[in-house]
């Protein structure tokens, strides 16, 4: 039962303990308020919940199925379990489904921790299927698929899309969390350069007609990179450094500063390695940007690198590659 809106708070029970939350709060909010961990992948405070990854499911009494904590609104008297057998089973299977079909090696650290916590064994579905050829997944027609023999576990592996100097799209790592679509469209950028295309297992993030980014509507604000939880969207600089096995987060420092291009006052986080800027992010908790920037703040740092007051070193060679339109 929901109480009238004038009510100051909603009371419910989570894992046996009572909790009081503001009206309209989600179960996730309620859990966090109590310090109860709930894994999330497609949820971000600054984006409209799409509730598609389902990793956040919890058990609510008198509900036939589990419910997504990230978007289900807390109701008076709800009895919620966040760690029941059913919850653990679904989370484990979701992690296995993702781990057996997507390259999670560059995903946020929590993902690996959850894999251990829920005892996920992605390998039990068999060896990975062969990666598909460049562009092949983008041409698949809905409602049809090839022969299935069960010897391998089909995945989304494919060559990285490198079509500009600013960032790359490695959809082998894409879990289809829709975050980039939301950040590009309705929730932040308003550009709508990318959307989900295709259907079913062949669904993918795509520009119109699978055009290279520069030929479509993309304005290279990099906001999609900022929200991607798996490293599918990656700064070209980071991607080149990783390829050269020179990417070293431990040796990086982060400097917070204010963008010098215009008067809005966006906060920037300059990630530097060997005194070179290797990527630029923006703090998600900053109320001007909510983690979002424009092309200038995000990518317009080359003039700093070109001051010539530092000796050229091997990192410069790699970063120079990132300035060439196509990969070598």
């Amino acid at each position: 039962m929901t109480r009238p809106e004038t009510q100051q708070s909603v009371r419910l029970t989570i894992d046996g303990a009572p909790v009081e939350v503001r009206p309209g709060a989600t179960l996730l909010e309620a859990c966090r308020q109590m310090g109860t961990e709930v894994p999330t992948l497609c949820y971000l405070e600054t984006l409209t919940p799409v509730n598609v990854c389902r990793i956040c499911v919890v058990e609510v009494e008198r509900n036939r199925t589990l419910v997504p904590a990230c978007s289900r609104i807390a109701e008076e008297g709800m009895v919620v379990k966040t760690d029941s057998d059913r919850v653990r089973h679904s989370r484990k299977m979701i992690l296995e489904f993702l781990g057996s079909s997507v390259d999670l090696s560059a995903a946020e650290d929590e993902v690996g921790e959850w894999m251990r916590q829920y005892e996920a064994e992605p390998d039990r579905y068999g060896p990975q299927s062969e990666p598909s050829a460049a562009g092949e997944r983008d041409r698949r027609h809905p409602g049809h698929h090839g022969e299935v023999n069960g010897r391998t576990a089909e995945g989304v592996h494919q060559p990285t899309k490198v079509d500009n100097t600013l960032y790359v799209r490695d959809y082998s790592r894409c879990i289809l969390c829709y975050k980039c679509v939301e950040a590009c469209g309705i929730d932040a950028q308003g550009t709508y350069a990318i959307a989900v295309a295709g259907r079913g297992f062949d669904a993918r993030i795509s520009t119109e007609m699978d055009l290279p980014l520069g030929d479509g509507a993309c304005v290279f604000c990099g906001n999609c990179i900022g929200v991607c939880p798996t490293g599918a969207l990656m700064f070209r600089s980071e991607w080149e450094l990783r390829r050269a096995e020179m990417w070293n987060p431990d040796a990086q420092s982060v400097t917070r500063t204010v963008c010098s291009y215009c008067g809005v006052g966006c906060n920037l986080e300059l990630h530097t390695q060997d005194n070179r800027i290797v990527k630029v992010t923006s703090p998600q908790d900053h109320d001007v940007t909510n983690g979002h920037l424009c092309i200038k703040g995000r990518f317009g740092y080359d003039y700093v690198q070109n001051l010539g007051d530092v000796d050229r070193s091997s990192i410069d060679e790699v970063l120079a590659k990132a300035r060439r339109p196509s990969p070598e």
Binding site: V52, N149, G150, R151, D202
Partner: peptide, 28 residues
């Protein structure tokens, strides 16, 4: 099994990947 794999919208992980894994297990 092929029907559901073809017809899932692909939005949520359990169904998008689950239908594929079911089809593979059945093939085995």
């Amino acid at each position: 099994a092929a029907f559901f794999r073809d017809e899932t919208c692909g939005q949520c992980v359990p169904c998008r990947v689950g239908t594929v894994r079911v089809e593979e297990a059945l093939a085995r």
